[in-house]
Amino acid sequence: MSLLALDRVAKRFDNGTEALKDLSFTVGQGEFVSLLGPSGCGKSTALRLIAGLASPDDGTLQWKDARPDLGFVFQEPTLMPWADALTNVRLPLDLQKIAHGEAEARAGNALARMGLASFARALPRELSGGMKMRVSIARALAARPRLLLMDEPFAALDEPSRQGLNDDLKRLAREDSITVIFVTHSVTEATYLSDRVLVMTPRPGRIKADIALPPGPRERLSPAFAQSQKRVADALLEPT
């Protein structure tokens, strides 16, 4: 059985907006799944439902066992502006009552993996947008989640930073065998990162295509990659 199964999930907001309707998909253990869809189709809403930050109005959301330990990376870095990078990364560890020394070491380690070892004592305002995003990812990773939810984490970044972070993320997810649900607008990013791409319809969002990509490493300039990318793009553009 898969790690997570959504079955005909619906979500309406108080103002009557129907964000999701009949949203069904599954995510397997260790899979890297992208949610791709137009702006406002309910991707963030779906992530919040999965995280348990909101509950569905209809349908079911089922876990294989219990909800695994989660990491959440928001579209904005969402750091505490008064705390330095290390303290920000340590936040989930502190909340889990992990001993100070160990928390410090693990947070430092997570920062180092994101290439920010020398910025542990920097405040968010002393970091660039891309660096803040890396801190936010380090914070999610430091808690050693089994499932990582990421909401357009690289949307605001320049292409080289974005590609660098894509590579880092892919490597880290594989090394720690983390399941990832990754929301993005970008066909290229979805194709590059994912085992599967779930393409959503405009609001109210549901899945209109579930595309399994060939396994193995991806070469951004290879013809095979271009082909995969075209499959995803076609599915996204196809009228519903």
Partner: peptide
């Protein structure tokens, strides 16, 4: 307070 930050705290069981 940044409500995303509060969500994050909730997520970690604060």
């Amino acid at each position: 307070a940044d409500f995303h930050l509060i969500d994050l705290m909730r997520l970690y069981g604060a």
